[in-house]
Design a protein around this nucleic acid. Structure first.
Lengths: 200, 200
DNA sequence: CATCAATAGTGACTATACTCAGAACTGAGT
DNA sequence: ACTCAGTTCTGAGTATAGTCACTATTGATG
């Protein structure tokens, strides 16, 4: 076990490479065909591993989607957070964060909804699932931060309101009724709801 | 086709009976074992029909759950609406409606979450799915009615706020994190969020 | 009653996410 | 170099939701 600093052992390296190949394969196939049109066999084949191997790295196909998409949502949140900093109006600043995430969600239509479904209904013991929930938590924290700015919203209320905003986002993006809606329509829908929450 | 008033024809009667048997079988099995532990084969067998016949009446297993549960939610809503009428405090009246639905949702733990999942992510072209969405719409209407009472909430805002409350309910009941929570904990969670929405 | 078109019912079959018993590989100890 | 315990990989196999080509039933019509 006593290895040099860079030394990681062939075993670990192989494992990492396999995970990387699986991630890359899933990422490409999901993006191109949508998660429902891709079989785990196809992913395994493209990653050049056995079908069983895929499930050594993720418990379910849904968690594979989380693994692949989490990184995008993480980035989207960061972009939104930066954008929000340069906007003084509270509603507009909140909408900057929301908009960034909605755009991320809608870049791969079907996958976006599946991502949300897995997040809420999937097994939270799986690491990639926990990561997704963590991103939601961070998003709420960012929104709460903006809400607290003017001092018009109470310290404790900010966190609760941010959680409510999170629920609004989830349903607007996930609802079958809004399935055909583009980014702008979803954003408008969310804006309408968020604006009645803020003091006015 | 020209039949007497009561006359319905053996064909229609048979169809109705089969649907009734399927509904009853599904209802019992789902209640006893939970939707995930019951196979469509078992349901077909208990209803004494072929496996294919089940899918003549519903498109998916999920829609079979909606078919079976909708009636309970409809009743729960009605109960909640009546209760709310006798409560003057707006928050408490809203909570009466919510409480009734939460109790309905939690009487069959796993099934409640699956019901919500199907509602949001299932195919809305199916009649039982539409019915479920209709119940949600009615629930929002009832909540909006209560919110308008005191005149403290704007006419238009009431509907939007009711929709937000609906989103809060959905996530509190569906979230995996709250999976182990009982009726009281879910109600408290929702109450905390709803109370910051109301003018205070 | 006999015919027949339309409707309803059926269960063998298909597709696919996921499992699991065993094969293959790895690296530490000798 | 050899052994071997532990780890990782594998693909044939399993379970089950949903399909579909065929069969059975119905009731209108001559």
């Amino acid at each position: 076990m006593s290895l040099g600093p860079q030394q990681v052992g062939r075993r670990e390296r192989n494992k990492q490479q396999k995970l990387d190949r699986i991630t890359a394969a899933a990422s490409e196939l999901f993006a191109e065909h949508g998660v429902d049109e891709v079989t785990t066999q196809q992913i395994a084949e493209k990653a050049d591993v056995g079908t069983g191997t895929v499930f050594l790295y993720v418990k379910t196909k849904g968690e594979l989607l989380l693994l692949v998409q989490n990184v995008h949502y993480r980035k989207a949140l960061e972009r939104g957070r930066v954008d929000a900093e340069n906007i003084s109006d509270v509603l507009e600043a909140v909408m900057a964060i929301i908009g960034s995430i909605v755009r991320c969600n809608r870049t791969q239509i079907d996958n976006g909804r599946t991502y949300l479904r897995e997040m809420v209904f999937g097994n939270p013991d799986e690491p990639h699932h926990a990561e997704a929930l963590n991103i939601v938590g961070q998003t709420e924290k960012a929104i709460a931060g903006v809400l607290r700015r003017g001092g018009r919203v109470g310290e404790a209320d900010a966190a609760t309101l941010a959680h409510v905003v999170s629920a609004i986002m989830f349903l607007s993006m996930a609802a079958t009724i809004n399935m055909a809606h583009g980014v702008d329509e979803i954003e408008a829908d969310i804006r309408g709801q968020v604006s009645v929450l803020l003091p006015h």
